[in-house]
């Protein structure tokens, strides 16, 4: 038997099944929990999640607010996308700022160029407590990372916001049960079973709006940690580094100072789908400095309350 390229294009029926599963989870958690919130960063996964949430409750308005944990190190194109999307949908936006956590002395200031990625956990947990949210929808997928591959669709967090991978609740059939005691909460991941390719095929099928930096464009970049970083307010060339202009796009969107661009000419959704289908490097491996620190970087952050 011959096995050729295995990341082939699944049929539309498969996307319908994934869409239906996600809508089912969104409705189930919204019905079972008192105060859910949808985490919306402006990235492609949370954009798909929000798109599905709108479908799940149409023609009614979203029965929960959306929340952005703002590190203050965003790409401006992503903030523009966030704001125009929220306005188009008439959704209620809550912004939780890492800068506020720094000002309140809850976390140490990593400095002008240091990563604020890990600090988000404190800001997120504080915001969940302040607003009394008992469930937070996230766009995380199990194919992204080996710790995420282990997580339930409804993931229980204790009163400290911690994930305990050794004591997860059984999750049988599609009987998602969202009961928590005061102070505890759930993370809900409706896109758990989606792959990166599924996400892009779905975006193409639905012809969704996205931040412009997902599409190939010419930009001034600098090579660092074997990634192309975009030169801008959050990344300045260090001594000895040479900036160049290249055609790049972003496969993931995180903080501007730790998210790398990939060289690409893909400037349409169809071209991006093709590029993702033949990629040799995972999206986080190609573009995230924050996952390179240790073997269990994601597990460690999740235990602390990360997305």
């Amino acid at each position: 038997m011959t096995i050729t390229s295995l990341r082939t294009e699944p049929s539309l029926e498969h996307l319908d099944a994934l869409e239906s599963q996600a809508i089912f989870i969104l409705r189930e958690v919204a019905a079972e929990c008192e105060r859910p919130v949808l985490l919306f960063s402006g990235g492609k996964d949370s954009a798909v999640l929000l798109h599905l949430a709108v479908k799940a409750f149409a023609p009614q308005r979203l029965p929960f607010p959306v929340m952005h944990v703002d590190t203050g190190q965003n790409f401006p194109e992503v903030l523009e996308f966030r704001d125009r999307t929220v306005e188009r949908l008439g959704a209620r936006l809550v912004v939780a700022r890492v800068q506020d956590s720094i000002d309140q002395g809850r976390v140490l200031d990593p400095g002008q160029t240091g990563s604020r990625n890990r600090l988000q956990s404190v800001t997120l947990l504080d915001a969940i407590a302040e607003h009394g949210f008992d469930a937070a929808f996230g766009g995380a997928r199990r194919d992204e990372d080996k710790a995420r591959a282990k997580e339930r669709i409804l993931s229980f967090r204790n009163t400290f916001g911690q994930w305990d991978p050794r004591a997860q609740r059984p999750e049988l059939w599609q009987l998602y049960q969202g009961r928590v005691n005061p102070g505890e909460h759930l993370r809900a991941f409706p896109l758990s079973d989606w792959t990166e390719l599924d996400v892009w095929q779905y975006i193409e099928r639905e012809n969704m709006d996205l931040p412009s930096i997902y599409f190939a464009h010419r930009r001034e970049v600098v090579r660092r940690d074997s990634m192309w970083l975009a030169v801008g307010p959050h990344v300045e060339p260090r001594e000895g580094e040479v900036t160049e202009w290249r055609s790049v796009r972003f496969r993931t969107v995180g903080d501007a100072n730790c998210t790398g661009a990939v060289e690409s000419e893909a400037d349409t959704l169809a071209a991006i789908v093709h590029e993702v289908a033949i990629a040799n490097v995972s999206e986080r491996g190609a573009t995230r400095a924050d996952d390179r620190f240790s073997e269990t970087a994601m597990e460690d952050r999740k235990r602390e309350g990360y997305f």
């Binding site: 096995i3 295995l6 082939t8 079973d193």
Partner: peptide, 15 residues
């Protein structure tokens, strides 16, 4: 193995 890990694969005929 302590807990279930989910992995995704595709062949030309099925996912």
């Amino acid at each position: 193995t302590i807990d279930v890990a989910y992995r995704y694969a595709a062949s030309p005929s099925r996912k």
